[in-house]
Amino acid sequence: MKKVAAFALALSLLFAFAACNDTERYVNGFSMGSFYYAEYRSSSEQNERIDRVLLSIEKEYSVNLSSSCLFRINQAKAGEEIELTEEEFSLFSALFSLSAKTDGAFDPSLFPLVKAWGFDPPFDPKGKVPPSDSEILTALEASSLSFFTLNKETSSISKSKDDALLDFGASIKGYGAEKVMQAIEKNVKSALINVGGTIAAVNRSYLVGITHPRNDSYEYLFSFTLEQGEICATSGDYERVFVSEGVSYHHIIDRKTGRPSNSGVVSATVISENGLYADSLATAAVVLGVEKTVNLFSELGVKGALITEDKRIVPIGLNIIQIKDSSYSVANDAKEGA
């Protein structure tokens, strides 16, 4: 009898711990150079749906796969017309107009420059050296959206310079997160989608932490609530870095100098219901610096937060919940909503 009681108690103990876990993590993917996962009560049907969405985006927009429209454009000669599907065409138009709004701080045509610096995928920091001034200049000359023409009537794109190249790496994770959200939101109670750090909150809000840009012994630097239906993306100068002769070079290139940006903003988080906006503008903000970013964000109606070199956190329409590293302070004065 006692043994039965002990067994029953042990069993109830097991359930007490098991009860803590009400969602599971579905990890399957490697897409767009990053791992993706979804946290929800998963079902194989939804899992397949997520895979399908992300893998098809990868196939369409990877610069390295011959199935991709970007691959075809980059291989094309000047004057060649490359046909686009309706969806591709609208993505191209959206990115081109967004680039104009950021005054080129976000620019999908910087790929020649990105390649000259060796930041194109797959990135390997080992033994990298920065390009020479003349190499930078040559790459800069090929880096402009003005070489590309979208033709709505024929739903196609052409370019006027052979070595002009496009790359959607700064935007595509946000696009993917939004597409996954649209694909599953009617079928799941709630879910958190994470495509390589770009996060979508499906059907409920989630508490999200932002990577500490300078000290990875912190799990995160600060946290905020990502509301239902929102997508957040973060870009920082701490990602994809190589060091040469004691100088470190990061992957966010400023087209004004042709070199890694040095605006004082070391990390930018953007929150929007539009995944393309979130992802692309995070890159733009690191290039633009605090003042221009604050203006741009209020113009475009997005929220976010910047982390500066001098350890300030600048929220833009965002409620910062907790800061883990007390040497950082929130600058929530005049800047906000300026």
Partner: peptide
């Protein structure tokens, strides 16, 4: 709500 444990890192 919540104790402040984040559910994801961006």
């Amino acid at each position: 709500v919540g104790k402040g444990e984040v559910e994801a890192i961006s």
